[in-house]
Design a protein around this nucleic acid. Sequence first.
DNA 1: GAGTGGTCTAGACCACATA
DNA 2: ATGTGGTCTAGACCACTCC
Lengths: 226, 226
Amino acid sequence: MTGWEEIRDEVLRRIRARLWVPGATIPTEEALAQEWGVARATVNRALRELAGEGVLERRRKVGTRVTLHPVRKATLDIPVTRREIEARGQRYGYRLLAQAEAEPPPAVALRLGLPPGGRLLRLECLHFADGRPVLLEDRWLNPEVVPVLPDFHRISANEWLVAHVPWTTGDIAFSAANATAAEARLLDLAEGAALFIVERTTWESDCPVTWVRLAHAPGYRMHTLL
Amino acid sequence: MTGWEEIRDEVLRRIRARLWVPGATIPTEEALAQEWGVARATVNRALRELAGEGVLERRRKVGTRVTLHPVRKATLDIPVTRREIEARGQRYGYRLLAQAEAEPPPAVALRLGLPPGGRLLRLECLHFADGRPVLLEDRWLNPEVVPVLPDFHRISANEWLVAHVPWTTGDIAFSAANATAAEARLLDLAEGAALFIVERTTWESDCPVTWVRLAHAPGYRMHTLL
DNA sequence: GAGTGGTCTAGACCACATA
DNA sequence: ATGTGGTCTAGACCACTCC
């Protein structure tokens, strides 16, 4: 019992063995440090890790408890589409369908926190895997963060943004939707096919950057370990 | 510049200000500790945090770099269905549709790593929000981990498992699917409606526990901050 | 061999929540 | 007022990896 990882594993073992049951408080850092003959900081590191994973709940003065109603946290890796497709061993393709300045629908302006009536750059693109269309992208871009327009026929907006405006914040939502007639035509599907929808809003320190809706063709799965 | 959070924020600021550009190595922990007048451990804590978020890449002897091809990590909170519905201010309801011992389909046995021909406990349940069906659950449960059967009419399998077999590992996948005729009837939808599908496989230290498929009615959104 | 991050220690003080 | 976790320090040694 020398490193914080061993300590973390031992704590997990005791929880799984029900020596420490959900809702019960476990010994203090000080007590555990003495029991295992390590510094308190080492115990702290292990317990902090487990608290971050949702296994433990820690409160000053109260102590450390095994979480009673665990909320499982799944961490998703969200790569750039091209890398995601290439990681599956498929050939990536990309086509810009439309690029125009336009007034965004109210819902999009609202998400970005922009006043109605402004104009944004709209991009519509199709992504291919081994030549088959698999992803339809509908993007609205704030022209203020794109002073010099790249050629979006050659590089996808997402890749350009990742390289030029990295380390943004934002939010992301997942849902399902039936393909409209237009979507079905572009993705070569039957109308009404179930699409996996990803919506992302992106900011760079209080400045709205982009809103995008990604419609994945059937067969797409987002997978992760718990 | 006294705490590790301030240091983390300053590092982020320099990256966003492009003082440190993606791909470039930043100064060593030692140098930053001297610059800011703190202990190296404090700088380490801040940089370790950012490396965990994917902002930095750290390698011994090489140094710390700003990530060139960032993979965004989204952390999803996956609560128990009842709590998720109640958190939206809706009334939760639950009905057990079927409970029987049966041989699972090969795909399910495969996921759980069980030999074909074994028998599992199958549960089919419907979850309601304000009286409307919103979620259809199809679950296969390893009877070995459920020696004493609770009354699944009263408590959902998920809640029972969370309370009695917490801190499992597993994996989870998200996709979209069109409602079959049977699913549409149970969820009170038109056939073919786009369902948001969550599939989970759960283990408790090498012992398969359960496989479950959750079919969410249209309107369901899974949301998180980036 | 040498430079970098990874970790541990022993001690200290602080922040916070409860009593 | 007190007990708990949260953090910081100064120093040390180790692990990895490039040269």
